[in-house]
Amino acid sequence: MSENIKVTGLNVWFDKNQALKDVSITIPKNEITAVIGPSGCGKSTFIRCINRMNDLVPKCKVTGRIEVDGKDIYDADVDVVEVRKRIGMVFQKPNPFPKSIFENIAYAPRIHGKDLDPSLQGTKVTKYTKKELAELVERSLRRAALWDEVKDRMEKSAYDLSGGQQQRLCIARTMAVDPEIILFDEPCSALDPIATAKIEDLLVDLKKDYTVVIVTHNMQQAARVADRTAFFYLGELIEFGETERIFEKPEQKLTEQYITGRMG
């Protein structure tokens, strides 16, 4: 396993409440890592630190290191926009833009442009041509297993899609920016079982190309899709290991209580 995200001594405060306490975890590349735990345990706070979405929350303070490919994303010289380009995020509730299906995908790449040399970190950028943009949109939608369902109505509003389709649109939108890591914050909590199954299939397929971190309150979902599982409780990382082991032979009592349904 090669490491992708290395978190050391992460503490998060919202005003005076400490939401995360000294969390250290190493998330491997091209695997699915699930984050589970009861409500309020800090699991969402944790993944929102990885792409610095917590920067937007007033009175939020973060200490510790989050290294992505060896570089601390909280360093002073880091451009948060570049961080979020490399680390995409899919949210709890599908949140397509009030634009057409095509525009939802094309929105970000059109503004970012095409990175000619990724090692230069977005300093050499050119605009996508119309044709390239259309190809990119198609590729992203195909990758999210949505193309066949929407190819005849690309100009229709994204709000015409069902909840599950909207969520796959949001995944496609994230992939169009070409991230390395995709964070999922309870992506299926607003979806029915069939839509959920489609997203789960997609997740498993995505790990070939991306490192996936998924927060879920659904333990079966973690068991089904994740290679590794982390259990959070009251802001602390209690246990982290291969999913099978966590579910069959948890080392910690708290983990065992949670997965057997005696807590949470």
Binding site: N51, M53, V81, R84, F91, N95, F97, H112, T174
Partner: peptide, 15 residues
């Protein structure tokens, strides 16, 4: 305008 729309855009690396 819902906060979720703003977050969606920022998460795509928009300023």
């Amino acid at each position: 305008v819902p906060r979720s729309l703003k977050e969606a855009s920022l998460a795509l690396g928009m300023t």
